[in-house]
Amino acid sequence: MILFLVNAIIVLFLAAPILVVMATAFTTTGYPVFPPEGFTLKWFARVFETGEFTDAAQLSALLAICATAIACTLGTLTALGLSRWKGRGQSALSAFVLSPILFPTIVLGLALLVFYSRIGLQGSFLGLVIGHSIITTPFVVRLVMASLSEFDPAVEEAARNLGAGWWRTFFQVTLPLIRPGVLAGGVFAFILSFDELVVTLFLAAPGMSTLPMRIFTFVQYSSEPTISAIATMLIVVWALIGVPLYARFLSIRHK
């Protein structure tokens, strides 16, 4: 009974802000109120009226896709390397590889800004991709290493023994078996990158705006419920695409 109550309270605290934001997107007032007054879809229309949000969303998506691809590739290879290397310094190296998770992003942003201005990468899309990859790769490493912990290395040896070269062994045996880890890492990387604000603020060129930057600057100057409409759309998209993906590949172990 107490457990049930505690759970109910936790769920309420998690869900309430989301539901409130979603509700305020439909208010007819010029600012978010709860409970909403009346019903209108004009704030949703407003999102698409100017290109400012859609362009930012496109940039964010592109950035997240690039960062995810890099994080998955580098992260998977790093995890494989770390799990196989039994020499001295293995734990020190994995701690180093995973350290960006604990590193304050504001410091990372500043460091990258200084570094980029030296090598001429400041304000470039490439610079943003690299920055986001640094933030997201450790998560992929961590999750792939977790899935490697239940991986029997003899399986790879069996593949080699049966006549498979390195590529066939990797793509037909190793990768399918660590796929849950790689996919989980990929989902994580995508969300982190899509959501990233601090490092991006440091590195983006003037006029270059990701969706979180756009939202951040918008709320500084305006109180229109447009922002609630964007939030609602993000929640719905995530619920429709992300959650089934999560359930399909991550929580239920395949065959």
Partner: peptide
């Protein structure tokens, strides 16, 4: 390399491909 030796190995853990 192991894949070019014509040998069949049977492992303690069976090492079947679970997928």
């Amino acid at each position: 390399p192991p894949n070019r030796r014509n040998m069949g190995m049977v492992f303690q853990s069976y090492a079947l491909f679970p997928h």
